[in-house]
Write a protein that binds this DNA or RNA. Structure first.
Length: 518
RNA sequence: GGCCCCAUCGUCUAGUGGCCUAGGACUCUGGCUUUUCACGCCAGCAACACGGGUUCAAAUCCCGUUGGGGUCACCA
């Protein structure tokens, strides 16, 4: 038996981070067992623009390198892979259940059903009146049909039994069928409800392992009954805990982004968002950390996100933290999924991200940073070789200071004509004692350097400091602020070399002027 | 409320009856390194929800309590 797993997103216009984790576990399980991973689109409720609403979802999978064996764009033997195109399947299955007496037409109004359920709830009994449509004679039914009375199809729950499953993560779970209501499986307009459609689809797609969020656990009882009624093999279930929002006990949800915006647990992500999005021409509200696209657009590595997703609700052993996708494929198992729900942890994501960024060669990092400079207008769309060489130099000197690719924007001073001074640092390092004078005296030394290299500048500075009988730190710090405006960054000599002799001299002049002005 | 699921440091987790004085990671704190920042290194803070059993032995098994969550649609 080949393992077949699936993920069935609705085209909502974005890929949910929690859904991505569920998809990842499905994908991993299929890969690990040499099986197939299927993408099916649950678009029954969707109006138009399915393509537009689906695009970001497919893009998220592509970005993370999670390919699908069957589904949109790639097709497959069990298509179509859009629920909206599979209505025949649902109708046929429903008709069969009806013919076999396993389902019935329910003519009750929704008010009547509601009342039945409420009464049942109060009494703690199964809903008694609910099956009154079953009392109808064939003639009465025909009469109602002829009248055009609306009806829905209900599945007749076999009440004298228990439903038991062995969930790969929860273990043995059972329900008492006597307590269940007959579920609606087809709407009055002939379209299927989720619980029914998903069973028909999973059976027809030969899904062997249904790995999904635990919120579906209660749905499983009715689904098992449906599989049996349809004469299909019940798949193996694995209900994984859902992903909670950091700092909460609630499922992470797009509805709550405004709350997240103020939450300390989300701070690093929204700080990044606020800093980066405007610079790359995106509206601040356009993307948020609930969406996978957010991580792509702010310069995370697939490896970073994947490591984080793979480690929330799953572990390999007591010490392994850094896991590549290959490692995950090799070692993933449902048995090691944690039962309790886990909060997505932005801090930890950053630490994984930093790790994988450091694994990259300087050239790879440069390649990832360049587009951000372009989007921010700090580099032309068609950069010259000199431009690229400069980016490369900057990235190399920045080393592990770049955690996400968009961090390059923090060091925009290498690419701008006008720099902004960090006020505190300027006061502490430049506008202090005789520093402006020293800078003034050192300027001509720099101006006269015929060679502008790390070594020549360092030698000149050391000699100058010695002659003045001052520590090198004084000048070094002053030069950093004067030439970059910022207290953070690569070594000063790197900075000076990259900024360039001419610009350094101009900036020193500007700094001296600013320091002595007021 | 009924049904179902869950419960170890702030967070992610290890733990499947003795290797537990409960391990690792992130965060945080202190120190070292250092021309800034970052990295790195060292050290530290910090948890078995509670109550009963079972057992020579329980974080681990059982029962109960409490707490958290899910679900009860002509949504998915």
């Amino acid at each position: 038996m080949t393992v077949r797993t699936r993920f069935a997103p609705s085209p909502t216009g974005y890929m949910h981070i929690g859904g991505m984790r569920t998809a990842l576990f499905n994908w991993l399980y299929a890969k690990k067992h040499g099986g197939k991973f299927i993408l099916r689109i649950d678009d029954t409720d969707q109006q138009r623009n399915v393509d537009d609403a689906l695009a970001p979802i497919l893009q998220a999978f592509r970005w993370l390198n999670l390919d699908w064996d069957e589904g949109p764009e790639v097709g497959g033997d069990y298509g179509p892979y859009f629920q909206s195109q599979r209505s025949d399947l649902y109708t046929a299955a429903a008709d069969r259940l009806l013919a076999e007496g396993k389902a019935y037409r329910c003519f009750d109004t929704s008010e009547e059903v509601q009342a039945d359920k409420e009464a049942a709830r109060e009494n703690g009994t199964p809903p008694a009146g609910m099956r009154r449509s079953l009392e109808l004679s064939d003639a009465e039914i025909q009469q109602k049909l002829d009248n055009g009375d609306p009806w829905v199809m209900r599945f007749k729950v076999p009440q004298d039994r228990k439903i038991e499953i062995h969930d790969e993560i929860r273990g043995h779970v059972e329900w008492d069928a006597a307590l269940m209501f007959d579920p609606n499986i087809m709407r009055s307009n002939g379209s299927p409800l989720y619980n029914f459609a998903t069973v028909v689809d999973d059976a027809q797609l030969k899904i062997t392992h249904v790995i999904r969020a635990e919120e579906h656990l209660s749905n499983t009882a009715i689904q098992v009954l449906l599989y049996e009624a349809l004469g299909e093999t019940v798949p193996t279930f694995a209900h994984i805990p859902f992903v909670m929002a950091p700092g909460t006990k609630k499922k992470i949800s797009k509805r709550d982004v405004e709350k997240y915006r103020k939450s300390p647990a989300f701070k690093i992500l929204f700080d990044l968002s606020n800093q980066v999005l405007p610079q790359i021409g995106l509206d601040e509200g356009a993307l948020n950390p609930v969406m996978v696209e957010f991580y792509e657009q702010t310069g995370f590595l697939p490896a970073g996100l994947l490591n984080s997703l793979g480690r929330t609700g799953w572990s390999f052993d007591e010490t392994t933290e850094f896991m590549s996708l290959d490692f995950l494929i090799e070692n993933f198992s449902l048995g090691r999924v944690v039962k309790a729900s886990a909060a997505f942890d932005p801090e930890k994501l950053m630490s994984y991200q930093a790790h994988w960024m450091n694994e990259l060669s300087s050239d790879d990092r440069t390649e990832r940073c360049t587009p951000f400079l372009q989007k921010a207008g700090l580099l032309p769309a068609d950069p010259s070789e000199d431009d690229l060489a400069k980016v490369s130099k900057v990235v190399e000197s920045l080393g592990d200071r770049i955690k996400v690719a968009s961090d390059i924007l923090t060091y925009g001073y290498f690419f701008k004509d006008n720099i902004e001074y960090d006020a505190k640092a300027f006061k502490k390092r430049v506008k202090k004692g005789n520093v402006p004078e020293l800078l003034g005296e050192f300027r001509p030394v720099l101006a006269e350097l015929s060679e502008w290299t790390l070594e020549s500048i360092e030698a000149a500075l050391q000699q100058f400091a010695e002659s003045k009988e001052i520590g090198t730190g004084l000048l070094i710090n002053a030069l950093r602020i004067a030439s970059t405006g910022s207290p953070a960054g690569p070594g000063v000599y790197d900075c000076l070399v990259i900024v360039g002799q001419e610009t350094v001299l101009t900036r020193i002049d500007a700094a001296i002027e600013k320091a002595t002005a007021g």
